[in-house]
Amino acid sequence: MIAAGRRRRIGVFFVLLFTITLLITLQVRSPGRRQVGWVGDAVAAALTQLQVGLAHVADTGWRWWSALNEIGQLRVENARLRLQIERQRRELAVGEESTAENKRLRRLLAFQPRANRPTVAARVVSRDPSRWFTTLTIDRGARAGLRTNDVVVTAEGLVGRLMEVYPGAARVLLVSDPRSAIGVLVQRTREASVAEGLGQPTLRLKYLSREVETKPGDVIVTSGLGGSVPRGVRLGTVRAVMRPAGALFQEAEVAPDATLARLEEVLVLLSGTRD
């Protein structure tokens, strides 16, 4: 009886192990190392809508929590001042938030003409929970005209590209994701290179010629080669240059200009060729 139970347990384990290994093998051979299929797409579309809803709930909760915190702090003051300060702080908080939002949106709007493409503004509603891979979800999707591979930017610079688009939301693959590789130029020397994500805050510039000097502080912009990312979008600044002895090329560490860890609003550049 015990032996039969053990056999069944081990059987279940190996069937699952084989099935998942097969699934991973098929996945890593597909473009972008992910092939969800129409069923997965439908489930993901429904779940991202739920994520958008939960994000809105969290935003509301956070506003209430901030308000409660403020009230707690003001209790120590006398009644007259408490009322006055509470009103002023609330107004100030709302004002500062509006000012900050206004500033961000103005910078996004100012960026639009330079991008020379139709754009759609979107809010970040959730982030990849896995820690190791860097994707995020925005609250605009196919209904707003977004398509897979559309480029995502902020006024500071390049953020990533759309890897999956659902009716009301889309998933962004950040430039820092290990699966991301973008053709770039060193602005000062016009030296072409590839910026690869490392799954951490900095990127790695590869295949830089040793004959052209690249220095910390050099600005990195997109090369536009390949067509999906427009030319001249700012990516980041060189932080360090590595010249390993005996290597054919030099490499550089680049800090992205866009604050990828604290994105709230982004701009999606719609690609020139629409379906």
């Binding site: 998942i20 290994t21 699934l23 991973i24 996945q27 890593v28 190392r33 992910r34 092939q35 969800v36 997965g40 489930v43 993901a44 779940l47 994520q51 990849d128 929970p129 896995s130 891979f133 994707t135 890897m163 999956e164 998933r171 693959l173």
Partner: peptide
């Protein structure tokens, strides 16, 4: 599915 990763990892 939710994290945008290769299914199976």
């Amino acid at each position: 599915l939710l994290g945008g990763l290769a299914l199976g990892l």
